[in-house]
Design a protein around this nucleic acid. Structure first.
Lengths: 218, 218
DNA sequence: TTATAATTTTAGGCATAACTAAATTATTAT
DNA sequence: ATAATAATTTAGTTATGCCTAAAATTATAA
């Protein structure tokens, strides 16, 4: 079993656990784009290594040991994304794949140097929290733009699907990046578009895109 | 056949070809620490992919296509070594392993950004030439310190074995780093130590270490 | 309780990449 | 030229990793 595959599975399980825990094999299969039987096999091997708890027909959760590895990958990934944008001029829509490959390869020493150089940052370019070395992570109370009501205002906190370059480029055009102030001007029913005030401009954004934009209400 | 294994074999073959070409399977086996028969198998697969020329019982050389990949890896490796020392505070004795892992993973885009940020450098921290994107590379006419005679002077050009951290730390202590002026004060027979003037100090360096220090005579 | 859906088991595929031992080929010394 | 030696290749084996389809099992909800 190679380390990269282990790390990818653990990361997937970690992220799925944020929504529902325990995680079913079919959810993992879906996320990893393999068959459920492949997942069952892999999960057994992860279980043999004490990286997950596993009860048949019930689900999977990470052990402490498994979570340490998952968080390490998440830390690597998000630090790298920030590093690439801040220090190497990458766009926030270009960093996901690069970080996905690099996260498995950088040493702890390099991780630490990058973190220090960036002044131990708390968030990646998409507003996602970067786990600290001890596994702790800031939680921001926020909600999708689609759930705000007319008149509500707040600050863009994070973009949910940070793997979708096209979406990111679109949101950037609209100015919907973490830290931006936003006030909802108008909402429309039946998952219709949302109108909002952003950077002193009126913007209109479709429901699907808006669903990825999480706002911290004020 | 995974890409990393291919790249490692091609890099090995490239480096061995600098000394003698064609390269025998046993030389490759020695360099890669595997059995000659394993190399024969691998070489056949490389041949199937047009990455090497291969004649049984005769030897192996890189095809153009193979050389492109080998040089790309060398470029990645050396750029990364320089980047890690210049931008991330790594010592020249700490970068080899990190670069060895990263070289297979960075994208062309990241390579280019790193190169640009470093102002398209020509040499890595050990004085080795960095291949340009088109495969060209500066050649420096230099020779091992052990081959200089008393009174000869020059500039340290490069360190041959850049994988040996201990050696690199030792040479750094002595001030024997690329760019340093050096004048040979005394040589001793039977592979004995060499005395030289470096940074206004007299230093004594053993034959084995000196053999790794290449000098550009003036 | 029985049908349906989800999950697991089984058995095997396919690729990589190493190894050993035996056979073959090339080189060297007589 | 030939025998001895060295280098190389062949053939077969081992081990790993990750996947799949199909069959069997288990959970669940009507």
């Amino acid at each position: 079993m190679n380390q990269q595959a282990i790390e990818d599975y653990l990361k997937t399980i970690y992220l799925l656990e944020q929504t529902e825990s325990p995680v079913s094999t079919s959810r993992i299969a879906e996320a990893r784009q393999v068959r459920p039987s492949s997942v069952t096999n892999m999960v057994k091997r992860l279980y043999d290594r004490d990286l997950v708890h596993y009860r048949k027909h019930y689900g999977v959760t990470l052990t402490d040991e498994g979570q340490v590895i998952a968080l390490e990958m998440l830390r690597h990934h998000r630090l790298l994304e920030l590093y690439l944008t801040q220090e190497l001029g990458f766009g926030w829509d270009e960093v996901h794949e690069e970080a996905d490959a690099l996260e498995h390869v950088i040493s702890e020493k390099l991780e630490e140097r990058i973190a220090a150089l960036l002044d131990h940052p708390q968030f990646d370019p998409h507003g996602k929290p970067i786990p600290a070395r001890d596994g702790t992570m800031i939680e921001v109370d926020c909600q999708p733009l689609t759930q705000l009501a007319q008149g509500d205002s707040g600050i863009v906190s994070r973009i949910d699907d940070d793997t979708n370059s096209e979406l990111l480029r679109y949101l950037e055009q609209l100015g919907l990046m973490p830290g931006t102030d936003i006030q909802v001007t108008k909402v429309t029913p039946f998952d219709g578009p949302i109108t909002a005030q952003v950077n002193n401009e009126q913007i209109v954004v479709g429901h699907k895109a808006a669903d990825n934009v999480y706002i911290k209400k004020q």
